[in-house]
Nucleic acid binder design. Structure first.
Lengths: 110, 110
DNA sequence: AAGGGTTGTCTATTATAATGAACATTAAAG
DNA sequence: CTTTAATGTTCATTATAATAGACAACCCTT
């Protein structure tokens, strides 16, 4: 069956932003689309659609492009990514391992 | 031909962080994996691999999950995403429309 | 400690993204 | 203003992600 997905405005804007950041980073570094695509091991066609902010491309590919052209994700200083990652893992360990969904209304409205 | 991709440590860390942020957000909101998957219109299997930080899933799906569980992307206040997006488009318009790769050495080292 | 919901994980099948090729258009640079 | 590299864009084909289903292990609650 044909998949039909919808994306919130927020998601579409975030995609557009990231695509633009990558394109800007590429141009500022004097790389052609072909240059960057080869460097990342993808086709120029895929890079094109990523720079356009398409929702379909693989997140790993997009993040790799960001890394190559120097777009910072989550941290101003990307040397701290490991630190943040560890912090999050620790935080996660403190949370319940599984979420219990209440059978009926628990204290819903009215 | 079989595709073989490599990802930098930075990329893998960013993926892990985002997966953890989504999982933490989900748990803190008391949603089961099934809840969140349905809400986003994806399978629990896919959500699972996203929370694990896999590079393959579609970026639009991952961003949508982030939006649902309240993970902020790029902006502390996501109401400003549109503003940032516009700013980037304007910045992009000021850059050269195409990058010219020099034929030979231009002024390389030594 | 038991019962059942939740999660971790694997596996076919199906839907779709990635690719390379192609071509028109554009714009950088001589 | 001419040249030609770079970009925008579309289109089959191929590789792969998404899915549903299944099952065990786990944890929560009673």
């Amino acid at each position: 069956m044909k998949r039909t997905r919808t994306y919130s405005r927020m998601t579409l804007q975030a995609l557009s932003i990231l695509g633009n950041l990558i394109k800007i980073g590429r141009i500022e570094r004097g790389m052609t689309a072909q240059d960057l695509a080869e460097r990342a091991g993808i086709s120029r066609t895929t890079l094109y659609s990523i720079e356009k902010g398409a929702p379909g491309p693989e997140i790993g590919t997009v993040f790799e492009l960001a890394a190559i052209v120097g777009v910072q994700l989550f941290e101003p200083d990307s040397r701290n990514l490991a630190v943040q990652d560890k912090r999050l893992s620790e935080k996660l360990a403190l949370l319940p391992q599984s979420v219990r969904r209440p059978k009926r209304e628990v204290d819903d409205d009215f």
